[in-house]
Write a protein that binds this DNA or RNA. Structure first.
Lengths: 203, 203
DNA sequence: CAATACTAAACAAACGTTTAATTTAAACAA
DNA sequence: TTGTTTAAATTAAACGTTTGTTTAGTATTG
């Protein structure tokens, strides 16, 4: 791992925890064990460090979804595998996705936010294709596709990102971080799969 | 409206737009047309202003949900009215709920966050009662109640709060703010009602 | 020896908060 | 109604920190 990546990993951790604005370059440098000036040296500015972080982590899901759209024909099976991959990815990179979704709650359209928006829109586009194809194949009934995608994103975010609330609702042990609990993840997958099957097929 | 409330309204607007950390007391005072010192004078500190804001807006939904639980017997009808009230409230106070849900994405447990958490947990408790009662009356089938609530919260947040993304997915005119579009709200209600009915009854 | 990596120190700007002085508003007595 | 008193409301200015960034100089490395 290069020093640059090392800084990005620490940045992800701190920004996920405290938010972008509340994360100072000094705390970042301190945690990464480097000099403050290195952030400007490597990235130019704090803002550009953030953009670099987005570049660093993005694109994984879209590639996976595109593969699924090409290689799995059965709409229901494909949907299950999509949920499986989606939940896996978000749980394994929950910090980054917390940053993404927190940023999407902003109303300001900065350069970084436009980047994030494009990444998520492409992912959404692949999911849309899945549902449309299933509808065309008469496996899925007609649903509000756009709101279905919003529901999917919103639910996963709520479960994996907004865990301060959800872990309390679900009542998991607050000592063990729910996001690292394998059982919690499996339960999320089962819930989402059942929900989407019922919603899309009516059965 | 008192001066105090006037400050709270402006605070809500700015914090919803830029986040708590990124909202300076000076920009707040400027927009409210008051002196910076008035914030300390009325609230003591920036942090306490935030707590005052939470107090100022909280509690509305819980009272509504409690009334529904007492007065409406049919589980399905009650669920529909709950969704109706929930969506109405969040759309009419979308700025405040953006603040709430952004804060719930944090991992830090400050005094303010504990306040927010308690408010939302009480709301969730009322929804839980609704689902449990419907289950007992054999109108609803057995579902993962906790995750169902998380799905409900997550979906509404996604639709109403994270509108930078969702309005693009849904494809509404970005000129007209979707949150103020009556049709968008109606569509959200229809979607959620259908989704929950199918999910809870299997029909 | 030249280029890259790194550091400590300083920079101006912005932050939340406090101070001390001033204006405003209400209450009271003549 | 008038002038006086008193407390609340409001102000401009300054406080000490902390912010992101830059500079100028020092190690390190190929």
């Amino acid at each position: 791992m290069t020093k640059r990546e090392q800084i990005l990993e620490v940045a992800e951790e701190l920004i996920a925890e405290n938010g972008f604005e509340a994360t100072s370059v000094r705390s970042l440098a301190s945690k990464a064990g480097i000099n403050v000036a290195m952030i400007s040296y490597y990235f130019g500015s704090k803002e550009k460090l953030f953009e670099a972080l987005v570049e660093y982590r993005a694109g994984f899901l879209r590639e996976k979804f595109q593969t699924l759209n090409k290689e799995v024909e059965d709409p229901l099976l494909r949907m299950e595998q999509m949920i499986d991959a989606y939940v896996d990815r978000i749980f394994s990179h929950h910090r980054f996705h917390r940053i993404l979704h927190r940023q999407m709650m902003s109303t300001k359209s900065t350069v970084s936010n436009e980047n994030i928006l494009n990444i998520l829109l492409k992912n959404a586009g692949e999911v849309k294709k899945m549902i449309q194809d299933g509808e065309q194949k008469k496996v899925f009934r007609k649903v509000d596709i756009e709101f279905t995608i919003a529901m999917l994103i919103g639910t996963i975010s709520q479960i994996a990102v907004s865990c301060l609330l959800t872990s309390r609702i679900v009542g998991v042990n607050p000592n063990t971080e729910s996001i690292h609990d394998e059982q919690y993840k499996v339960r999320a997958k089962i819930f989402l799969t059942n929900l989407m099957r019922t919603h899309l097929t009516g059965k």
